[in-house]
Design a protein around this nucleic acid. Structure first.
Length: 734
DNA sequence: TGGGAGTGCTTTTTT
DNA sequence: AGCACTCCCA
């Protein structure tokens, strides 16, 4: 045992210590929110290397996000005086990319294969449908994309999909055609990175054995987020006797909608014969009240592995609850509350404003902006997803591989160079007929189209020649200049930001080259490929920050999903309303409500010291006023943990009848939907709470007809949305 | 080619 | 409401 070991293990609690120092065997660590999960994972690696003669070379650590991978690497190099170079630490996609680059021949890929991000994939699918003359009403590109990805994530190739009717047969045909198109163009989508490297190992016994023997320890972060294919990938790699060390929290599985299988945790336990699951239940993050609330909420889920967080911190402040008349009032209140918090000395960046869906951010932003409070929104367009950056990257991709039709189609006429839709159609037909790329078909064109397109081909050739031997940033610079993008945006009215971003791309290339140490580990084998190819892969695999360079002292706005893994001193959770959170769409799905509840659990456990919950009776959504009941999740929190800032339960969920308190402020007049009476027949009002013998309490949200035809639509929360005829249903004001 | 009008969709999202 | 997308005309 090395002398640094005691230091390494200092301060770990007994469960953490047990996890870190587990003898070589498969392990499942059930790590609750704020229980020191990342610390355990990194310390485990450090401990393995420093005490058991495990070489860094034989460690494989997988995460889901680049951020997590970097974090792990940073902590590790602080703990160990070793070179992290030879280690395989990265995201599933990053590592698969690395694997495929190293063995591109065996995987049947060109050395410089390009990676399609979500948007690229969609446009490739659109192009495919067009070339095959498929009605995109019958096969919406987005649905097809989802179908293809879902199949790949199950590890299912087109040939293996079962199809019984014409529609599904056609869909499978398109999946197959898509695979062929990608193969011809030398491009690979995200799911393909996984599937292709899985197949590579599965089919190539020598290679498989090589990696199985190399990696003696495989560690997985956020295991509850793995999908079927990732599980099989891990199982294959661990098949040679490696130890699988998986860390996860079933209660924080919130990505079921994109293929994550919480069931993988149980499967792991069973298939890998995990002797005893270690639970990390001591929470170092939140005060007691917050934790109690989180535990109370998650207890309502039936399918759990079971876990109860505790803390030895005090119970802290109560959870404050605010009921607003509408979303505007909610936002106004938030601003005021944030103001007084900052006056008390809270740092703005330690205050987070969370919401279920992005559409909710607008009102909040508006209020913050008007109040002059700096804020930062996560989500939305990332750096490498911006139009101008994607254009620039497309040129770079064409240098690396002129057969990349996605890139070709993107910039062949941007900036415009007189290549119209007609010419491109001709070209596409030719390419389709001879099964070649667009670029390769240019030679066979004739007439006017030929001239313009040949000039474009020449431009690409010139870019390639001109950048030969140059360092990467200069390559980017050179290509930008020749492409005409700079000029184009200079002439555009609103082009200033875009120009700045293009400049930033050169900087990004420069820092990419200089950050070699990370690249070696996280991205790919830099020695085996050009800087350009590595940079392009980097751009696809890591879309970059959402916003560059904003002030750090800003309120943090984000969806609950993107808050996972983060923590803040103060958390505001807004829009706690039935239909919004839990989201109405989730109620249609089996297990949907449980996932929503886990989402709620994640939201609550982000807070260290203070948690605020708010909801509004009325909210503008999609241009219409909606009347909502308070979220059932609020009801699941023990009353004694809550402190109401407004008269309690004006708008009760399944409520005991309340004295209807006069609105604190004058409510804006209820906006009426087109052709719907404000005053519904029978003296009931839209927005009014009513009670029904069977469905309980609900809010009238719509009305139509008159006399015996009169009907009202009521949101009953639990019991759902109902249209009831007034002549039949007995409704009493609640 | 580019802009203006008309249409339709709208949960969550990393890679 | 707001945004992305398509279509059609100057």
């Amino acid at each position: 045992m090395s002398s640094s070991t005691p230091q390494l293990l200092a301060g770990l609690n007994p469960q953490q210590l047990a996890a870190v120092t587990l003898p070589p065997q498969h392990a499942l660590i059930l790590a609750g929110a704020g229980s020191g999960k990342t610390r355990v994972l990194t310390t485990r690696i450090a401990w393995l290397i420093s005490t058991t003669q495990v070489s860094p070379h034989s460690v494989l650590a997988v995460t889901f996000t680049n951020k997590a991978a970097k974090e792990m690497l940073t902590r590790l190099s602080a703990m160990l005086p070793i070179n992290t170079r030879g280690m395989w630490i990265g995201t599933f996609h990053g590592l698969c990319n690395r694997l495929l680059r190293a063995h591109h021949k065996e995987a049947g890929l060109p050395q410089l294969f390009q990676i399609l991000d979500q948007a690229d994939q969609l446009s490739a699918i659109k192009r495919l449908l067009k070339s095959l003359d498929v009605d995109d009403e019958k096969f919406p590109p987005r649905e097809l994309q989802h179908f293809i990805n879902a199949q790949k994530e199950q590890g299912t190739r087109a040939g293996a999909v079962e199809a019984w009717d014409d529609f599904s047969r056609k869909r499978v045909e398109l999946y197959e055609a898509y695979e062929r198109q990608c193969q011809r163009e030398g491009v690979v989508d995200f799911a393909e990175l996984l599937l292709r490297s899985f197949e590579l190992l599965e089919r190539n016994e020598i290679l498989c054995r090589h990696y199985q023997q190399r990696f003696r320890h495989i560690l997985v972060d956020e295991f509850q987020d793995t999908n079927k294919l990732q599980y099989r990938w891990l199982k294959l790699l661990a098949g040679g006797g490696a130890c699988l060390f998986a860390v996860g929290d079933d209660d924080q599985s919130i990505y079921g909608f994109r293929g994550a299988e919480v069931g993988n945790m149980r499967d792991l336990e069973r298939e890998f014969k995990v002797a005893n699951v270690i639970r990390l239940e001591q929470n170092y993050r939140s005060h007691g009240n917050i934790l109690d609330a989180a535990n109370a909420i998650i207890k309502n889920n039936a399918s759990r592995l079971g876990k109860n967080l505790w803390t030895d911190a005090g119970s802290g402040e109560p959870i404050r609850v605010f009921e607003a008349i509408n979303d505007l009032e909610e936002a106004r209140w938030l601003v005021e509350e944030i103001r007084s918090l900052t006056r008390e000395g809270h740092s703005r960046s330690e205050i987070a404003l969370l919401y279920r869906s992005n559409a909710q951010s607008r009102v909040l932003e508006h209020a913050l902006f008007n109040a002059g409070l700096p804020y930062r929104v996560y989500g939305g367009l990332r750096f490498f997803e911006r139009q101008e950056i994607k254009h620039a990257l497309a040129y770079l991709r064409l240098i690396a591989n002129p057969d990349d039709d996605t890139a070709f189609a993107r910039v062949v006429n941007f900036p415009t160079r007189g290549i119209g839709a007609r010419s491109l159609e001709q070209l596409a037909d030719l390419a389709q007929a001879q099964g070649s790329s667009l670029h390769a078909a240019i030679g066979q064109l004739s007439g006017k189209a030929q001239v313009a397109l040949a000039a474009f081909a020449q431009l690409i050739a010139r870019m390639k020649e001109g950048s030969a031997g140059l360092p990467l940033p200069e390559v980017v610079d050179h290509v930008l200049a020749l492409s005409g993008l700079i000029e184009h945006y200079r002439n555009e009215k609103e082009g200033q930001d875009r120009l700045a971003n293009l400049d930033e791309l050169i900087n990004a290339a420069a820092s990419f080259v200089s950050e070699e140490w990370q690249r070696e580990t996280i991205e790919a084998n830099a020695a085996e490929q050009s800087d350009l190819a590595a940079f392009l892969a980097h751009a696809a695999l890591e879309a970059g920050e959402h916003q560059a360079g904003d002030s750090d002292e800003a309120i943090q706005l984000m969806t609950v999903h993107s808050a996972k893994g983060l923590e803040f001193n103060v958390v505001f959770l807004s829009g706690l309303e039935e239909g919004l959170f839990p989201h109405e769409n989730s109620l249609l799905e089996e297990k949907g409500l449980e996932e929503e509840r886990r989402l709620m659990y994640v939201a609550v456990t982000r807070a260290r010291q203070q948690l605020y919950l708010s909801f509004a009776e009325t909210r503008m959504l999609h241009g219409q006023t909606r009347y909502n009941l308070v979220s059932r999740f609020l009801d699941e929190i023990p009353k004694d943990l809550l402190k109401w800032l407004t008269p309690k339960l004006r708008n009760a969920y399944g409520a005991e009848a309340q004295t209807k308190s006069a609105p604190a402020q004058t409510a804006p007049p209820l906006r009426q939907a087109k052709s719907v009476q404000r005053e519904s027949p029978g003296g009931l009002q839209i927005g009014q709470n009513v009670r029904h013998a069977k469905f309980g309490v609900g809010v009238i949200i719509n009305a139509e007809g008159s006399g015996t035809d009169a009907r009202v639509q009521i949101n009953f929360g639990h019991a759902g949305m109902k249209w009831l005829a007034l002549s039949i249903a007995k409704l009493t004001p609640a």
